[in-house]
Every structure is written in structure tokens, then in C-alpha cells.
């Protein structure tokens, strides 16, 4: 199919325009975080660092960051362990119900957050009788983070094949020794990438969090949501929003680099 120059130009223009619209609102938030207006008015009447200073000194914001990092770290650790185990089971064994297990891992991220959220809320409060706390958030986050670790680990296991593991077994190594000295070193960078994604996913999450957090638990997204509707807090929210984007995009970028480097090396 030979597209004429005008058609190609038109397609390029549409693509460029859409990308501009995709990035524009994020740029507006960045600029608003330096705006001297407290009500998101555009164009900014002047620029100031006041909101950045105030946010840096805000105990509430700091606590929220600490809470979010804690939740994200704990969920990532759980997701790393469970995701690796499922990946090994699905990639190295053939068994009845294999595709069901596969579906089970993907389901928490495939269903809308509100379904996962209310199901867990109901499970904790009504059925298990566990009061909502920071730990219920960790359990919820870990559940939907398993899939990111799983995806990375499965892709790596598929690629490395079983030859080295068989050689290790032939040389007399037991299952644990083979995992420690052969499988794990091969998996390491894939697990790092999956872990970074899981961390970012948990750090950002809002819907499931609102359903599973105890009343005193304020993660950074909850802090933003609470402050968004308060008058004169808009620029502070903009500052935190910028921080949130940077903190979540950097791990993603690193994870992509890790996966890409891996493909190149092959």
C-alpha cells in the first residue's frame, strides 16, 4: 500500500498532536507546582518555590511518603516470593489446571480495581473479622503485584531453558542448590525489573487502597485525594503529583532498561 505524502503527513500530524495532548496536562501540573496562584488559574500570575518548600516541610506529606514506601516495599517482597514460585511452577512443570492458575494470577489486574477493592474489603471486614489497617493494604497490593513479577520471571525462564538446570542436577546438585546457584542468578535481573514495576504499581495505587486502608492509614495517593478538594491546597497537591510521577516513572524506566539490555545481550 503506497500512501501519498499528504496522507503520511496527516498521520504524522495526528500522532504528534495526540502526543502533545497526552503530555500537555502533565506539563500543566509541573508548571502549576511553581505557580503563585492557589486556585490553578492559568496562566500562572507568577512563580514561586513556596509550595515546594512547604511540601518538603509538611509532616503530613512526609508521613504519607513513608507509609507509601513501606507499603510498596512490603507488597513487593511478598509479590517477588509468590510471583517467582508461580513462574517456576508454570514454566517448569506441566500439570492439570495450569491455565487456571495462569488466569488466577492475571485476574486481580484484569478486573476493575473497584471489584478487587470491594471483594477484599468485604473479605477482611465481614468474613475474616480483620479490622482494616496498613497490613490489609499490603495484602491487597501484593495480590495484584504478583502478576508483574510473574510476567518478567516467566519470560526469563522461557528464554533460559532448562539445559543449565539439568547439567546442575546431573552433577549431583539438589533442587535447592540448583535454584541458588543456577536458576536464581539467571532470574536476578528479571526479578529486579518485576520488583521495580511492582513497587511503582503499589506506590501509585488508589482505588483498591481506598477500600482496604484503615482510617489512620494515609498513603501518598490518599493524601493527594484528601487534599485535592481543600481550598488553597491545590499547589501543594501539584508538587506531590510531580513527585509521584517522578518516583513512579523512574523505576519503570529502569525496569524497561533492564529488560531491554537483556534482549540486546542475547
Amino acid at each position: 500500500m503506497h500512501l501519498g505524502r499528504p496522507t503520511r503527513g496527516l498521520l504524522a500530524a495526528i500522532t504528534g498532536l495526540t502526543l502533545a495532548v497526552i503530555y500537555l496536562p502533565l506539563v500543566v501540573v509541573l508548571i502549576n507546582s511553581f505557580s503563585s496562584s492557589t486556585s490553578l488559574s492559568w496562566p500562572p500570575p507568577g512563580f514561586t518555590l513556596e509550595w515546594w518548600v512547604r511540601t518538603a516541610n509538611s509532616a503530613g506529606a512526609r508521613d504519607a511518603v513513608v507509609t507509601s514506601v513501606g507499603v510498596a516495599l512490603a507488597s513487593t517482597v511478598i509479590a517477588l516470593v509468590l510471583g517467582t514460585l508461580v513462574a517456576i511452577a508454570l514454566q517448569r512443570y506441566d500439570f492439570f489446571g495450569r491455565s487456571t492458575v495462569n488466569l488466577l494470577v492475571i485476574l486481580p489486574i484484569a478486573l476493575p480495581g473497584i471489584v478487587t477493592g470491594i471483594a477484599l474489603n468485604n473479605f477482611f471486614r465481614t468474613i475474616a473479622g480483620v479490622p482494616l489497617s496498613i497490613w490489609t493494604v499490603v495484602v491487597a497490593h501484593a495480590t495484584f503485584c504478583i502478576v508483574t513479577v510473574f510476567n518478567n520471571a516467566v519470560a526469563r525462564l522461557r528464554r533460559t531453558g532448562t539445559r543449565l538446570e539439568e547439567a546442575s542436577a546431573d552433577l549431583g546438585a539438589g533442587g535447592w542448590t540448583t535454584f541458588r546457584l543456577v536458576t536464581f542468578p539467571q532470574l536476578r535481573s528479571a526479578l529486579l525489573a518485576g520488583g521495580l514495576l511492582a513497587f511503582a504499581l503499589s506506590f501509585d495505587e488508589i482505588i483498591v487502597t481506598t477500600f482496604t486502608a484503615g482510617s489512620g492509614v494515609t498513603t501518598l495517593p490518599i493524601f493527594i485525594l484528601n487534599n485535592m478538594f481543600r481550598p488553597n491546597q491545590a499547589p501543594v497537591v501539584a508538587v506531590i503529583a510531580v513527585v509521584l510521577v517522578v518516583v513512579s516513572v523512574v523505576p519503570i524506566y529502569l525496569a524497561q532498561r533492564l529488560s531491554a539490555a537483556d534482549v540486546d545481550r542475547r
Partner: peptide
Amino acid sequence: ASYLVKAYA
């Protein structure tokens, strides 16, 4: 980028 931040934007 955070869902919440995009809605806020």
C-alpha cells in the same frame, strides 16, 4: 504516570 495525577491534571 500515576492515574491520580493524570485525573488531577
